[in-house]
Amino acid sequence: MSGFRDKDFGDRLSTAENARKAMLERVRAKPGADDPAVAERRATRQAISTAREARLAEREAAKIAEQAREAAEREAQQAAAHEQRLSQEVAEAAERAEKAERQVALEAEQKAARDARYAARKARK
């Protein structure tokens, strides 16, 4: 076991310090806010965000238009159904009036026939 080396406290401290230095170098190596690449990425993200908002607004407008169209269609269907009910009621009323008129005519015809039979019977006596 001559190849195994146990790390002592100093080695651990130096390893931790090297790790901190490496992290600090990575942070320092990042481009600043005034870097053109950062500004370009920010502009790209802003353009994507604006396009997304425009698509959302367009979808919302289409949804509102669809709801308005459906409401108008329902209104038209209700109006057509109401008109159909009215015409059906008028037809039924006309049919009832015609039936009543036929009944009155039938009763008058029957009364005339009855009166004629009565008169004929009186004439024979």
Rank of each mutant, 00 (worst) to 15 (best):
25 E>T: 13
33 A>G: 08
35 D>W: 04
9 F>A: 15
88 Q>V: 13
84 Q>S: 09
10 G>W: 03
53 E>Y: 06
61 A>F: 00
100 A>V: 11
67 Q>L: 09
58 E>H: 00
96 R>W: 03
44 T>V: 15
112 A>I: 05
2 S>C: 15
26 R>W: 01
104 V>K: 13
63 K>I: 12
76 A>E: 06
77 Q>W: 02
116 A>R: 05
93 A>S: 08
33 A>C: 15
109 E>P: 01
7 K>F: 02
44 T>M: 14
96 R>N: 03
14 S>V: 15
96 R>D: 00
2 S>V: 13
62 A>G: 14
104 V>S: 03
92 E>M: 12
83 E>M: 06
51 A>V: 12
6 D>F: 12
72 A>N: 15
68 A>W: 05
49 S>N: 05
93 A>T: 07
71 A>M: 07
15 T>I: 07
70 E>D: 07
38 V>G: 01
74 R>W: 07
69 R>Q: 07
30 K>V: 11
33 A>Q: 09
76 A>T: 10
122 K>Q: 11
45 R>D: 09
104 V>A: 09
22 A>Q: 02
75 E>T: 05
78 Q>G: 13
48 I>C: 14
81 A>C: 05
103 Q>W: 11
31 P>R: 00
33 A>R: 10
20 R>C: 07
47 A>I: 04
16 A>D: 09
79 A>P: 00
102 R>F: 00
73 E>L: 11
20 R>F: 08
65 A>G: 00
14 S>F: 11
5 R>Q: 15
70 E>Q: 09
90 V>R: 01
36 P>M: 07
92 E>A: 04
29 A>I: 05
15 T>R: 08
118 Y>C: 10
29 A>Y: 08
106 L>T: 05
23 M>Y: 01
51 A>L: 12
95 E>P: 04
12 R>S: 14
13 L>S: 04
19 A>K: 04
12 R>L: 09
114 R>F: 08
85 R>F: 06
